[in-house]
Each structure stands twice: as C-alpha cells, then as structure tokens.
Write a protein that binds this DNA or RNA. Structure first.
Lengths: 211, 211
DNA sequence: AGAAATTGCAAATATTTTTCACTATTTCTT
DNA sequence: AAGAAATAGTGAAAAATATTTGCAATTTCT
C-alpha cells in the first residue's frame, strides 16, 4: 500500500486543496492553474505544483489542471470515495458536539458508534448514533471493524481506554485528550489539544509581534 | 516584547512540559532531570535541555531542575499567571461544547463573551457566559478589550466575521472553520480543522503502514 | 576529596520544506 | 500555420527547521 513517501507538509495541505477545488466546481470552473490556486489557498504556486507532482502528472502544461478530474483524483487519495466508519469514545461535552458535527460534509466519514461509561446515555441513540457502554468498547470495535476512533474521555482514563481501543483493532486515534497516549508504532495518533492550541496562540501573541 | 526567536517546535512542546511538571508537583517531587522528563514526555533529553535553554539557564548542573521554580517560570511564559479573556464567536454545536469545555483547567483562559446571530440565544447567558448578538461583535470586543477569539461560525460567514473581529481589535484567532481566513499580518490565526485532521489521519492510515 | 550526575551550549548533523530556474508542452492569437 | 503566451513538471539549490553530539562547567553525593 505504501506507495511513496509524501511529505507530511504536503499531506496536510491536501484537504485544503480538495476543499477549494470543490468550490471551483460549484462555481462551474472547469480548469485552474497553480497560480490561481495559489492565491486562493495561500500556498506558493511552486509548492502546489510540487505537491501535486508527488502523485504524478496531474495537469497539462500550458493549460493547468482540469478541476473535475483533479477532484476525482483527490477524492480517491483522500478516501472521500469510501465511507470510513469512526468511533467516538466518550460522549461528554465535546463528544456530544462532535456527534452533531458535520464531519461528513463530504460524505466520507461517519461516526457509527459511540461509547460512554455513563449509564444514563449508554444504550441509547444520540443524534442517530448508538451509544454503547464502555465495557463493550473492544468487542464492538472488533465486530464493527472500526479502525479510527475519536477520543474525548477524561484524561485520567485516556491511556486505559486507548489500550482497550487498540486491542479492539483501532489504527488511528484523533486524541482530544491533553494526555500523550502511548500506542504501538503501527497506530497513529493525531493530537488535538485545544487548551494547548489556545496557549500556543496566546504565547505567540505575547512573544512575537508578528509572524 | 519580542525577546528572541523560539522555534515553533519548542513552543509547541512547552505546554506539554508544563503539564507534566504539574503532575510532578502534585506527586510532591521537588526536582527532575532532563532524562527523567524525557521519558515521561517522550522527547529526547537533549532536545528538552535545548528547549529550556532558549529561556536561559533554568536548571542546575549536577542537580537537574527545581520543579517548583520551573513551573513558576513556565507559568509566566505561558501566561498562566494571568487571566486571558477570550471571545467565542458562534454558539452552535461546537461553540456550545466549547463554552462548557474546561479551558480554564489551569485557570488562565476564560471565555468571557460569546456571540451569535441567533435571536433565541442572543442576550441570554449560557454556562455563565453572556451571549451577545453578532451585531455587537465589534463594539463588545473593543469595550472588553478582548484580543483572542475562538471562531466557530459557518464557513460562509467566516471571513466577514473575522474582519469584524479584527476591526474590534482581535490579535489571535483560534479558527475552527475550514476556511483559511485572511487577516492582517499582525494577527495570528491558529487553524483547528477537525475534518482536516480526521482526513489527514485516515490518509496516513491508508498510505503508510507505519511511521 | 573524588566520583557521579547533570546542565548548558556551540557546533555538527539531519531532516524537511520551499523556492528557483529552466525545459517541455499546450493553448491562444493573429 | 506560426509565433507568442501560459503553464506544468522537476532537478538542484537554498532555506528553514529541528535534533543530536560531545564536552566543559558545575553541583551534589558518598
């Protein structure tokens, strides 16, 4: 599966390109040049061409890129053409918001199971998603073959829950917990630490006057 | 104010160090070495020393670092010793969750005003935070001298709201919108794009078998 | 007093990312 | 159809960023 090493920086820009391409499509644009794209997404045009080139020759010299086929291509790359089922572990404040959050705006990610220790909500359906008790975490993940989990539990239990999720076959974790969880190296964790983000933001504000 | 250029990578690790130091403090540890810290936060000890050294000589050779004074120092650096008032713009799903979110776990960030277009919630108080109508965005920001905003509005209006916020004096924006907003260069934007994060995560899962 | 521990830091490396500069194509214009 | 204009693709250079090494200086420990 591993084709070739795409730089992390590039991978992070892909969704941004993808999103803008869809805007172009909606506006009935059929072609776009790297220069044009550059202005919209605020990335140097050479960088864009370089990014695209990791995937082969997607454009036409002297012409630009065909919006539709580019979208089609990225859709595959970004797994937009396939539904990815995701588990939400921890249905507190944030978890609840994520249940309603429009992850599937492009129709590719769906929270198909949620878990919580709270008896009050376990075994109910919230926003169309079944909530299982935490005790069933592992078995449900296995059964439903879910490989991606969003972790929004209190940090005290984060590691333990993570272990359980990994045991259930999870390979990717979007971790909203401030805790840096430990996982086997074939599991990827993407940390989203809101407090951290805010602090970093404030830090930069205080310590740099521009940038 | 701008003291010296701290690498971005370092700045991002600071909150992590800070958090762990507090754990040590809670455990009544009075000193810690870079090696010890290293294991806990999973960062090479040399990197930690390097990171710390940007701020001067914080430790004692042959001894290590004094937990308490290190915390005290970082608290200043990270503005934990001062309350930063933050505005929440857009009280939808996610916004609502953030209102309840424990940003102030260390008591330094407080959402002190929220804004929404919805008449039903404007001019009410939610989770202890006053919600103002969006029309008052600029004036309230000015009046309350809020410099940091969390943006959780629909992306269609993101740019427009951002402009308004900037006009109101905001210097830092935590942007939950998928839109890359344009701001003057003295304003810093930190993007938190959840859909993007998930997509990137899934992308890596599919395309790399480890990392 | 001597051994052990440990920071601080300059310099060396390594890694990653961006940009330049140019060629090859294709499209557009007249 | 010829020439001009536009534009992708890309090797190589440069720049930016981050990590690691190696060791002197210092402090603590026994």
């Amino acid at each position: 599966m591993t084709e070739q090493k795409i730089p992390r920086a590039t991978a992070k820009r892909l969704p941004i390109y993808y999103r803008y391409l869809n805007i172009l499509l909606d506006a009935d644009k059929t072609r776009v040049s790297s220069t044009e794209l550059s202005e919209a997404v605020k990335v140097d045009s050479a960088t864009i061409r370089r990014d695209f080139s990791y995937f082969g020759a997607l454009g036409k010299r002297g012409y630009g890129y065909d919006v539709e086929s580019l979208i089609k291509f990225f859709r595959k790359i970004l797994n937009q053409d396939r539904l990815t089922n995701v588990a939400l572990i921890g249905v507190g404040n944030l978890g609840h918001a994520l249940l309603n959050f429009n992850f599937h705006q492009d129709g590719n990610v769906r929270i198909s199971a949620a878990f919580d220790v709270n008896d009050k909500i376990a075994n109910t359906i919230q926003s169309g998603v079944p909530i299982y008790p935490m005790t069933e975490l592992r078995t449900q993940l296995e059964e439903q073959q879910i490989q991606v989990a969003i972790l929004t539990v209190p940090s005290e239990v984060a590691q333990q829950v993570t272990d359980e999720a990994v045991a259930g076959g999870v390979k990717g974790i979007l971790n909203f917990t401030p805790l840096r969880v430990t996982v086997p190296k074939d599991v990827r964790v993407q940390n989203v630490d809101l407090t951290n983000e805010l602090q970093t933001l404030i830090y930069f504000l205080e310590h740099y006057n521009k940038d």
